[in-house]
Write a protein that binds this DNA or RNA. Structure first.
Lengths: 345, 345
DNA sequence: CTGAAAGCGCTTACAG
DNA sequence: CTGAAAGCGCTTACAG
């Protein structure tokens, strides 16, 4: 019934056109030294046989696979990842590159991510959500495969990175809360040791310092950027003798969790406690109360990570890019002026 | 300083071990007819040189690339896509396959998705968000590449599909609203012609019919599953002389949009109008009011699409799978009993 | 049990 | 301007 159609090879085209495969190759690759007449013949044969060059075979000899890999060490369901991938996808359109998502076994000691990339002839790779210390990072840098790290502040001969100005972002959040009269400002943080988290915590300290508010260790809780960690973290903060009147979270999902915990206690946001998030995922606007949060240009980060990567691929001497995207504060409904006698020093 | 380490080839291993490349190949591929002694030597050489077989080169001769492609014709930022990809990723772990996301140019008449897949030696592909009529679907079926269509009801020699029982899902939603006393039930639908939408509309009609409620064309509006289409669709419904008291939406995002429009009019959900969504994305629970919606086992669909695809790849005679996942109604806060004299026939 | 040879579908010097 | 040959890194009959 429905016949399976085999793809024609370059030999088929050569035979059809009555020329050599070398000549066909030259036509395909737009070499100038082919007569118009021959070029015509070949093009006709290509059209007739619906020939498409095999990218894989070509890659074997040229060493270029027209494929960039991506390592995502965060659940896809994190809206942050979705927005980033959307940016990646946008930058890839019409670039000629396809995207390969590697099934990496980062916890397997016998597994090497760099080997995986090389065995697939990847032209470059973007990596994100990996801690600076993971061995795969040094292996990657050693391998010489062009790499862009998102949110991991490492560089190498052919490796750059891109991140948001996390530090300023949280600083702005703290300042905003200060200006609203808050002095007991807590922080629901992320995973200790990750560049992203450390920078945000530094911004938190900056903000406190600029406002001359002493740092309290019991106001800072580690987490993992998830809804759950916001929920449990906030529950813990509410147990304190002097609970905070405001909390800055290092992700929007964590902020949602925190708000959930606050409301479960019969309190309201922002009347009783102000909450600010980080990321500005699209849900932040939909949420009630609409979330005050630090905006990251996530889509842009996705786009630029690919653009810079491709630049590195095309030019071996391209200096390893280090790009920092600005953060900005988006004020919505989850933060408000502190009322009453709560203001203390 | 940091030396770039080249990956060893099978020739390097052969030389190091003092055997032929054929023998190395046999060791790699676990052929039995290799003496223990030789096997040892080769394994040592492999370890010494940190050799990994080049998947690409292997693929060129075996015809298998250990790569499955995915065509996603919906924005990544749609939470539905994220959940599906998370399932896909889960099923891929330890399968040996990597995932390639094709930069498809579906609107380019010179572009053939099937050719693209073949030129990349893809072992199989999962496609979703593509209308049944798009030429790429027949091309794919013709090509003989194992394919799983998600939410598109086509099959072929080596092509199956998977979908949610959309029809029953919406039927249940309508029935739920009917039992709450609603009779003026509208539908904010999706893209006409898409299998997903048609099934859901059929379920809407089923529900009406079972309740003996006449179908009103002005209660059914096409959309595109987005927040915006819920917003504008609902605005339109609110203009009617007899606006609906309940509306079933064909996506959660559309439901969010509809609720937004209702509230912007000074009305409340569910007191004034009940709203039910479709998908049960994780935001549905977070939203206020928490959304009553039809649950799809999206993660499972992602998992099964890959499992079935791999089964088709491994066995040329595997019958084209057609799987339908059950839908279920999740009742939350966005639907309520109709009060007062609103009940009419 | 082992290896030489052909071949997967291409590109790239090189000779003519 | 054109094509024969070697080679990219592998696997697979096949001969020994």
């Amino acid at each position: 019934m429905s016949e399976v159609i085999e793809l024609a090879s370059i030999h088929d085209v050569a035979k059809e056109a009555g020329v050599s495969v070398a000549t066909v190759s030259k036509v395909i690759n737009h070499y100038p030294d082919v007569s118009e007449k021959t070029r015509k013949k070949v093009k006709n044969a290509i059209a007739l046989l619906r020939y498409r060059p095999n990218v894989i075979a070509r890659g074997l000899v040229t060493g270029r696979s027209w494929t960039v890999g991506v390592l995502i060490n965060i659940p896809f369901t994190n809206p942050y990842v979705s927005m980033l991938l959307e940016g990646v996808k946008t930058a890839l359109e019409n670039s000629g590159y396809d995207l390969m998502r590697l099934s990496a076994r980062l916890n397997d000691p016998d597994y090497s991510f760099a080997d995986h990339c090389q065995s697939r002839n990847l032209d470059g790779v973007v990596v994100f959500g990996v801690e600076k210390e993971h061995r795969c990072i040094q292996e990657l840098i050693q391998s010489g495969i062009p790499t862009m790290f998102v949110d991991t502040d490492v560089t190498g001969h052919r490796a750059g990175n891109i991140t948001t100005d996390n530090r300023s972002g949280v600083h702005m959040a703290v300042q905003h809360l200060y200006e609203l009269g808050h002095r007991r400002i807590a922080c629901l943080a992320g995973i200790p040791g990750q560049a992203v988290n450390d920078s945000r915590l530094a911004g938190y300290r900056d903000g406190l310092q600029a406002a001359s508010i002493p740092y309290r260790a019991d106001y800072v809780l580690a987490g993992d950027y998830s809804f759950e960690s916001g929920l449990t973290g906030m529950q813990e903060l509410l147990q304190l003798d002097a609970p905070p009147t405001a909390v800055v979270c290092t992700s929007d999902m964590t902020a949602f969790g925190a708000i959930h915990a606050i409301e479960a206690r019969g309190l309201t946001v922002p009347e009783d406690i102000s909450v600010v998030g980080f990321d500005n995922i699209f849900e932040a606007e939909l949420f009630k109360p609409a979330l005050t949060t630090v905006n990251q240009n996530i889509h842009t980060i996705g786009v630029k990570s690919i653009e810079e990567l491709i630049a590195m691929i095309k030019n071996p001497d391209y200096p390893p890019p280090v790009v920092m995207e600005p953060a900005s504060l988006v004020i919505r409904e989850s933060t408000a002026r502190l009322v009453g006698s709560e203001i203390t020093r």
